[in-house]
């Protein structure tokens, strides 16, 4: 089971290595980690996707809470939050595959960012499931390069309202 934790931290050098170091040190399995500033520039959010069971995730939360720079942790695993990832993909194709690729891009509502006669660069912002499905679909083509972000997540205002 994948868990998504949103960790609000102080925004200063060292925090990221402190948090990621905890995962190495205690050999917790981490799928992705993304970090960025919040509306308050003194604070950042680190979004962690963790492949561990429920018990271990609890343990991870408790260990994270012991770090001085960790301010708040929210479990955004469930339906109450929006999750997004971004993937950038460059695919090489032969002329006869061109139509198929363009159709698939359309199916996934992905965007063509750049194109030459034999290569096409695609961008897709989607939830993690659609991203992996997209990647799986395109893996039969010749992927020249790719880059993807980790998951970021934000609680829906309607869910926030209920919670508060």
């Amino acid at each position: 089971m994948k868990h998504v934790l949103s960790v609000l931290v102080n925004n200063h050098a060292g925090v990221l290595s402190h948090v990621s170091g905890l995962f190495t040190r205690r050999s917790y399995n981490i799928d992705s980690l993304s970090v960025g500033e919040t509306q308050d520039p003194t604070k950042s959010i680190i979004t962690l996707v963790i492949s561990e069971d429920e018990e271990m995730v609890k343990q991870i939360e408790k260990q994270l809470y012991k770090l001085v720079d960790v301010l708040e942790i929210r479990d955004l695993t469930g339906e109450d939050s929006l999750k997004r990832e971004l993937i950038l993909l460059t695919v090489r194709f032969s002329p006869e595959k061109r139509a198929e690729i363009l159709t698939l891009i359309d199916v996934f509502k992905a965007t063509v960012v750049d194109m030459t006669e034999e290569e096409i660069m695609i961008e897709l912002v989607a939830n993690p499931r659609r991203i992996s499905s997209f990647l799986q679909t395109f893996s039969k083509f010749h992927i020249v390069e790719m880059a993807r972000t980790g998951t970021i997540a934000l609680e829906f205002p309607t869910a926030r309202k209920v919670r508060n």
């Binding site: 060292g14 290595s17 402190h18 170091g21 905890l22 040190r25 012991k66 001085v68």
Partner: peptide, 11 residues
């Protein structure tokens, strides 16, 4: 030493 001591200190 800041980096070295991250995992071995409370603060």
């Amino acid at each position: 030493i800041y980096g070295i001591s991250l995992p071995i200190t409370k603060y």
